[in-house]
C-alpha cells in the first residue's frame, strides 16, 4: 500500500542541513583556482543569460497560468499540473531575475538603485517591471491567505498586475543590453499577441451573464456561504 506518512512536509527535513553544507562547500570551493574559473564561467553565463531565462520563464508562467485558470482548454488533471508548472516556472523566473539584478550590479553594469527606481530609460523599464513582478509574486504567495480572508476578489485584482509587468519586462529585454536577434523579437511579440488574445477571450467569457441553462435547471441553487451537508437535499 502506501507507507508514506501523509503529514510529511513538502520540503524534507534533511534539505536544509544538506543545503547549508553544499553552500559551505561552494563558498570554500570558490576560493580555489579551479573554483574561481568555474565561478567566472557561471558569472559570464548569468551575465549573458539570466535576464533571458527570467523573461522566458516569465512568459511561460504567464501562458501556463492563463491556461490553467481557464476550463475550456484543459481537463482538470492537466489544469492541476499546469498550476504546478505555473508556480515552478514563476519561482525559477524570479530566481533568474534576482540573479540578473545581482550579477549586473556586481559587474558594475548598474547600480543597486537602478534595480528598483523607475526612470524613462531601457534600464528604468526593467526596474519598473521588477517592482511590479515583486508585488505579483507576493500576491501569488499569499493566495491562500486571500482565499481565507474577507475579500478573495482582491487577490485577482492584484495578481492582474502581471499583465502590465510582463510586457514592460519584454520591452526592457528587447531594448536594453545586446541587440536581440530577429527571431527572438518575433518570438516575444508572438507570445505577447497570443496572451493578449487569450486574455480577451477570457474577459469576454467571464464577463458574460451567468449561464442561463444552469440557472433554469437550478432555480434555487444555494448562493450563500455554508458548510455543505453530505446530503444535498433535492426535491
Amino acid at each position: 500500500m502506501n507507507p508514506r506518512p501523509m503529514d510529511e512536509p513538502v520540503t524534507p527535513k534533511w534539505l536544509l542541513p544538506v543545503l547549508a553544507n553544499v553552500a559551505i562547500a561552494v563558498l570554500a570551493g570558490t576560493a580555489t583556482p579551479p573554483g574561481a574559473a568555474a565561478v567566472a564561467a557561471a558569472q559570464s553565463f548569468l551575465l549573458l543569460y539570466a535576464g533571458v531565462f527570467a523573461l522566458v520563464g516569465m512568459s511561460l508562467t504567464m501562458i501556463v497560468g492563463l491556461v490553467a485558470t481557464d476550463r475550456s482548454l484543459l481537463g482538470i488533471r492537466h489544469r492541476v499540473l499546469a498550476q504546478a508548472v505555473h508556480r515552478a516556472s514563476s519561482m525559477a523566473a524570479m530566481a533568474f531575475l534576482v540573479a540578473h539584478l545581482v550579477v549586473k550590479i556586481l559587474a558594475g553594469h548598474a547600480r543597486a538603485a537602478d534595480a528598483v527606481v523607475f526612470r524613462p530609460t531601457a534600464l528604468g523599464l526593467g526596474a519598473l517591471a521588477f517592482d511590479l513582478l515583486l508585488m505579483v509574486m507576493i500576491t501569488g504567495l499569499l493566495r491562500a491567505w486571500f482565499a481565507a480572508g474577507t475579500r478573495p476578489g482582491l487577490w485577482r485584482t492584484l495578481h492582474v498586475i502581471s499583465y502590465f509587468a510582463w510586457p514592460v519586462a519584454i520591452v526592457h529585454g528587447l531594448t536594453a543590453g545586446r541587440q536581440a536577434a530577429g527571431w527572438v523579437t518575433w518570438g516575444y511579440v508572438l507570445s505577447l499577441v497570443t496572451v493578449g488574445l487569450a486574455l480577451l477571450t477570457r474577459v469576454l467569457l467571464v464577463v458574460r451573464p451567468v449561464d442561463p441553462v444552469r440557472e433554469a435547471l437550478e432555480p434555487d441553487s444555494p448562493r450563500r456561504e455554508t458548510s455543505v451537508r453530505p446530503t444535498a437535499v433535492r426535491r
Binding site: 553552500a23 570558490t30 525559477a92 540573479a99 545581482v102 556586481l106
Partner: peptide, 12 residues
C-alpha cells in the same frame, strides 16, 4: 541559481 549567486558574490 542561489548557490551560483553566493559564489559570485564571494568572488567579487
Amino acid at each position: 541559481v542561489g548557490l551560483m549567486l553566493i559564489a559570485i558574490v564571494e568572488r567579487t
